[in-house]
């Protein structure tokens, strides 16, 4: 129970535009038209931010498995990235799985 409560889920906002251009992700916030670019590692995290996979699993599966980086460093960098992107409204963060509409996912019966 305690371990589950530490899980963090991340989902892409529905109010953004995004496209990979030459390996880097280009993201625009519809709110204020601010443009961001993500490098290859950040793009891997972004693409995996489906709202249902916990951040530590995303880092494990999509960063540590693909890039030469220590897990603790990768998770710390990912936390910083998530904080930065969520502060601009590009990512939604929750301690529960997030539905595609931006809110916590409904329990399936």
């Amino acid at each position: 129970m305690e371990a589950a409560s530490q899980k963090r889920y991340v989902a892409r906002s529905t109010q953004i535009a995004a496209r990979a251009v030459g390996g880097e992700m280009m993201i625009m916030s519809a709110k204020d038209s601010t443009l961001f670019t993500l490098n290859e590692v950040a793009t891997a995290i972004w693409e995996a931010a489906d709202g249902s996979t916990p951040l530590d699993e995303i880092v494990d599966q999509n960063v540590c498995a693909a890039f030469d980086v220590a897990p603790s460093v990768a998770l710390s960098d990912a936390e910083d990235l998530v904080a930065e992107l969520s502060s601009h409204g590009l990512l939604l963060v929750s301690d529960q799985p997030i539905s595609s509409t931006g809110g916590p996912a409904k329990e399936t019966p």
Binding site: V21, G22, E24, M26, L35, F36, T37
Partner: peptide, 20 residues
């Protein structure tokens, strides 16, 4: 034009991507 937009435009031009 922002620096990021300029950079992405140049990258799209180099890669032949119809950005717009």
């Amino acid at each position: 034009m922002s620096a990021i937009m300029e950079e992405m435009g140049q990258r799209a031009l180099k890669l032949g991507i119809p950005l717009s």
